[in-house]
Amino acid sequence: MALECLVYTVTEVSEMLNVSIPTAYRKIREINQKAITKGFNKKCITSGKVSKKLFHEVYPNCD
């Protein structure tokens, strides 16, 4: 399975939340920080990308 199927990029997050690219980066960083505190391995987290599963836990109504 390709990584692209499992994560959203900053552009996709920006469009879904209707925010600017810098704000999307900030939102992604916040979600990824929560993932680290939950015990996710830092090596699995990529800057500018966020797990679809984690994103929809924080923003359940975004498509």
Rank of each mutant, 00 (worst) to 15 (best):
V50M: 09
Y59T: 04
V19R: 13
H56P: 01
F55P: 01
H56E: 01
K43D: 10
R26E: 10
N18K: 13
V19D: 09
T9A: 00
Y8C: 05
K34M: 14
K38I: 06
K34H: 15
Y59A: 04
S47C: 09
S20R: 14
T11Q: 10
K38E: 13
T11K: 08
Y59G: 02
P60H: 04
A24T: 00
K52Q: 14
Y59R: 00
I28R: 01
N32V: 03
V50K: 02
R29L: 08
I45A: 02
K52D: 15
P22C: 04
I36K: 05
V7D: 01
V10G: 08
N61G: 03
N61W: 06
N18T: 12
M1H: 03
T23W: 06
K38A: 12
K34A: 12
T23I: 10
E15R: 12
S14L: 02
R29I: 00
K27Y: 11
E4H: 12
A35W: 01
G48E: 03
V13A: 02
L17T: 03
K42H: 08
K53M: 10
T46C: 09
F40G: 05
A24K: 04
K42N: 10
T9I: 05
F55K: 03
S51L: 13
K27I: 11
T37I: 15
T37M: 12
T23S: 13
N41P: 07
D63N: 08
K53F: 09
G39E: 00
K42E: 08
S14G: 14
